[in-house]
Amino acid sequence: MSLSTLTKPWEAMNYGFLDASAKRELRRKMLKAVAVPGCQMPYASREVPMARGWGTGGLQVSLTLINPQTRVKVIDQGADDSVNAASIRRFLARVSGAPTTMDTLEADLIQSRHRVPEEIMREDQVLVLQVPNPEPLRPVQPNMSIARQMHADADYGRMWLQLYEQILRSGRVMQGASYPSLVNGRHVMTPSPIPRWDVPKLNMAKHLTILSAGREKRIHAVPPFTRVEPLVFDDVPYRVEDHGGLTCIRSGATGFFMNEIPQEDGTSAYEISDSEFGVKTIRAAEGEDIRFGDTWYKDGEMPQ
């Protein structure tokens, strides 16, 4: 045995920023997260040059999966051009040499903050969701050791009680985003703060979804063709936001999730939240030859 067999050649930087042992740990945890869908797996969550809570969990997963052939798309609340999305995309490209895109159809890896794209994702695509709070039980059980025991026992009675109380007080379920959902009939997970509109897109999807919380050091996953059922009562059906009938003022797209823009006269205007889908709609209207993917929602309705 010589010294050279014990060391590796000097490099200015690890490929993809994370060191090899950080990547191996993430790989092991990702495999376990896929093997037990919806169950939160603890991981070390290394430092990355970004503040915790700004997508470090998703970033670490992306850095582990990325190679020079991976085409990356990063979205923040549906937009490709927000500061957070643009900086993460630039960082990923800079440390990996990977090509970037804004088009959902071209992407291999989509890192997203709080939205699932409107176009149906294919089986060769991976969706990485950034998660601020991975524990769906936190509102009803702040002690995370007890919450872990409740997950182990599938003891989700308090989740139902919380929903029941909301219906009693307000007449409807008040949970707007991160709607608690039962995965594979066993673990309740938070789907990250995606709107209610996006939760049905995860149910029996063709793509793999990995949800990673960097600050909270938890990772969970929804494999393809896995049941993701929002917690609902038999007599109070699950309702998505009433955006099916709204039209985007900029692109004219109708029947997708919208951002509400308050106007000076007190009314509201609406803009499509999936910004690249809006851009494609505008360019198609201007006569360009644009390829659209099949969308999850058709005419503002999710086909059953």
Partner: peptide
């Protein structure tokens, strides 16, 4: 442009 070394490529 960063280039992965052979170990990284294999593991990835």
């Amino acid at each position: 442009t960063p280039v992965p070394n052979p170990d990284e490529t294999l593991a990835n």
